[in-house]
Design a protein around this nucleic acid. Structure first.
Lengths: 343, 343
DNA sequence: GTGAAAGCGCTAACAT
DNA sequence: ATGTTAGCGCTTTCAC
């Protein structure tokens, strides 16, 4: 048996399709109570469910959004996604998840597919993205929210969620400084990423406040993954003046450092203090549990959806208007940081 | 400016909408080359993109699928999702990701929403699901593939992907037995889950082959999460006859055991051998790296899509026909297993 | 308050 | 080979 349509409901209720449509949408003021009753009963009886496809064709709304992430395996993203999803579900929205695999072409393809599918909005949560994605979206005036740790969004007319790294990183440096650390190093992300630069800059800036010259702080490039952290440690140890405290660009890197340190017989935090960034669940489970600069990932997801809904309430011309906002970071102290070694 | 439609393309190419539609779909045999040229040029020129919404209204296909997982934060699922996604992308499909949060009501809500959105199929990849989901899907004759470690699908008329735990677990037991282990224990998942029972049964069965009486093998309940593994270890150690080898229901549990063992000053594998199940990426990164029964997660995802596409090629009445299949498990030996202590 | 009719953008007979 | 026509299931003026 095929789908029951609004026409059948209209017929069994003895009214017109228009009337059924009115009780469906709920808004129309003038409706005799009795009529509404009859319609609602017919709906019940036939177990009628409006076709969202047909509805979309006229309404120009699909109640769907697309989310682009680089790689959902990265423990950072699931939390963001959950935040998005919970808000979306509240409003009856469904979410397409698109993994770009760090592949710009694949990302573009996804964007096009989403535009073709007429999504109401797109959330770009990946650090590796390309401006032509935005062009594609602009042409179809599809609203977009960008998690702002990507290149080139600064100044562009896009809605963004910016992350205030400084605050949390300041706290981390403060914490380390009080523990007596004076020689620091940074294990960064891929240097071409804007967010890598931001994180490093925030760290160096915080150190500068304590009178530590950024020029004296070695920076080793990582890749934001565990193996990057592992590979970075030997380079740190080979440094002429071995640092006593390490700040990693993210938790995965920090965990790699932790793992490798153990393999090399180094004790954390006795010989070396390590601070991560993100506060993924794994950070609490490692040995020792990781001190880290926490990013409110779930909130970022929620916020992204909130911004999007804000945008959608505006007239179409204002979709490109920036409704940007900013989230804070904070320090979570665990056990990978301790007093600087005597030496 | 609003969307360019097929009518405009037809006009600028000087043909009818039908003709444009024909070159779009590509199949229609008889088309003068010159005509096709003109149409294609018009398409280019106007940068026309067909509306999938309108298309769906007539074709009854949306080129979308919904995937239900319990919790995408669980490292098991991202790989499955990637497998699904890659296959989907090949066919121009987009994927809705739905996290049930282990909440059956939420899952039902999602199913309804997916049905309303007219998805071409649904993939149920979560272990906690409820049969009325299937009812909902059957009513709209939406094809569904179930990863078969859930209750009640056995025998029901549903397409499933079954996991052959026995093979990999046999290999694991063989491996441990050869290392001299004779006293085993199992840290299982929530006992009410079908898949927990399957895994335990496969383990006990493998042991039986080596003359070890299942009645002598203690089973401690875990929750498939790290903290469950942590909490299980003390119970294991309190056993009258302390086992020398542990088989955990999944890697997260095994990792919890590893973490807790270290905290208690136990050396793995010197004092205790531990085997996990899944082979999530973290298993290779732990210290020591985990010996584990590997599940082909990415393949499961791919397979699920393949089965779905198979189903979609059939006439609608056969959607409920079972196109089930089965995947194998295998043993990945790392360093969490070693010779049994002399004792 | 409610109905009739047009139209959203496309596809698929049926003609020619 | 290509055009004409009639919907797909809904929303939304515009009448009454």
């Amino acid at each position: 048996m095929s789908r029951v349509t609004i026409a059948e409901v209209a017929e069994t209720a003895g009214v017109s399709k228009a009337t059924v449509s009115r009780v469906l949408s709920g808004n129309h003021k003038y409706l005799r109570a009795a009529t509404r009753q009859r319609v609602e009963q017919a709906i019940q009886q036939l177990d009628y469910r409006p076709s969202t496809v047909a509805r979309s064709l006229t309404s120009k709304r699909t109640n769907t959004v697309g989310v682009l992430v680089a790689d959902i395996s990265n423990p950072f993203y699931p939390d963001v996604f959950l935040g998005i999803e919970d808000r979306a579900l509240q409003q009856g929205y469904s979410v397409y998840l698109c993994n770009t695999n760090y592949d710009l072409a694949r990302g573009k393809k996804y964007i096009q597919s989403l535009v073709d599918k007429n999504v109401d909005g797109v959330l770009i949560m990946t650090s590796s993205f390309s401006p032509d994605w935005l062009v594609e979206l602009a042409r179809s005036s599809t609203p977009v929210i960008v998690l702002d740790w990507a290149v080139q969004t600064h100044g562009a007319n896009v809605s963004t969620i910016a992350v205030d790294f400084q605050r949390g990183i300041d706290a981390a440096v403060e914490h380390l400084y009080e523990l007596g650390h004076r020689r620091y190093a940074h294990v960064g992300g891929p240097p071409q990423l804007q967010t890598s630069q931001d994180r490093r800059a925030a760290f160096l800036h915080a150190l500068a406040r304590h009178g530590i010259d950024p020029a004296d702080v070695p920076v080793i490039d990582g890749n934001l993954r565990i193996d990057g952290g592992r590979q970075a440690l030997p380079q740190v140890l080979a440094l002429p003046e071995c640092p006593t405290a390490l700040f990693a660009a993210n938790d995965m890197t920090a965990l790699g450092i932790l793992f490798e340190a153990r393999a090399q017989g180094l004790a954390v935090p006795r010989d070396l203090s390590v601070v991560g960034l993100d506060d993924i669940w794994l950070a609490a489970q490692s040995d020792p549990p990781l001190t880290t600069v926490a990013l409110p990932r779930y909130e970022i997801g929620q916020l992204a959806m909130r911004l999007l809904f804000d945008l959608l309430e505006r007239p179409r011309e204002e979709y490109i208007a920036a409704v940007s906002t900013r989230v804070r970071t904070s320090l979570t102290i665990r056990s990978s940081t301790g007093p600087a070694p005597a030496a």
